[in-house]
Amino acid sequence: MVPIVARVRRRRRDGPGVWTLDLRSDEGAVRPAAPGQFNMLTVFGVGEVPISVSGDPGDGDRLLHTVRAVGPVSAALADLRPGSAVGVRGPFGIGWPVGAMAGRDILLVAGGLGLAPLRPALYRLLADRDRFGTLTLIYGARSPDDILFRREFQSWRRKPGLDVQVTVDHATDAWDAHVGVVTTLIPRATFDPSRATALVCGPEVMMRFAVNGLRNAGVDEAAIFLSMERNMKCAVGLCGHCQFGTVMICRDGPVFSYDRIGAMLGRKEL
């Protein structure tokens, strides 16, 4: 219930209106997060919002969160300068099942800011690359300017054992890669559907489209994982805001296998 006080060490622009904050705790380390988990970040006097951890869980020294300024609290967070205090509660929730993916062909399907919660999983997969089959990162953004972690994409493209495919919905003249929705890249990826696991993160509509693409490609519903978003106030299953039918997103998720929540996805105003 009570946040630990951390401080902004560095702040970096990672897209339009998108900033990655590197936090360091005043009172000893904030507990490390598993890939896909999130923290509740407080701007004192403004409010608190859930933000997924976007850094490498193996890098104990850096606590990274990537924030897009969309509301009063996220705008205040994105605007914090180095040295500013930030309240941290967490980490919370059940993240990506990275530990259970050994030997699998892996597809990371991200849309927009949804790449941020997937990045810790990508770091872990790359760190332990030999334990997994094929590894593909499929990323869709609105336009070339909106691509998150642009500089890092350069190094990901050079990684052996990682296939990176990026597409945009709206292209500019300078763009020479794919144009079209992110789902069009799924059939082009190399994987064996019978032993593939897909981690999907992005706007809910995009995830629903992606799931259709993955199912058409033969990926098992129990091997498709989605990170869900709903209003959250407490992050610990006490405030009731993140109700999603039979589950609570903060306590039972935010990452769910599709076979668990598929029947509720797309249900109007659930």
Binding site: T42, V46, K233, C239, H241, Q243
Partner: peptide, 25 residues
């Protein structure tokens, strides 16, 4: 049991606080 939270601050931003209050779906 649903609740929301409200943060408040004095005019200078020196003292801040958080309260929880009943909310309704």
């Amino acid at each position: 049991f649903c609740t929301t939270v409200e943060d408040s601050s004095d005019l200078t931003g020196t003292r801040t606080s958080r309260s929880r209050r009943w909310d309704s779906c």
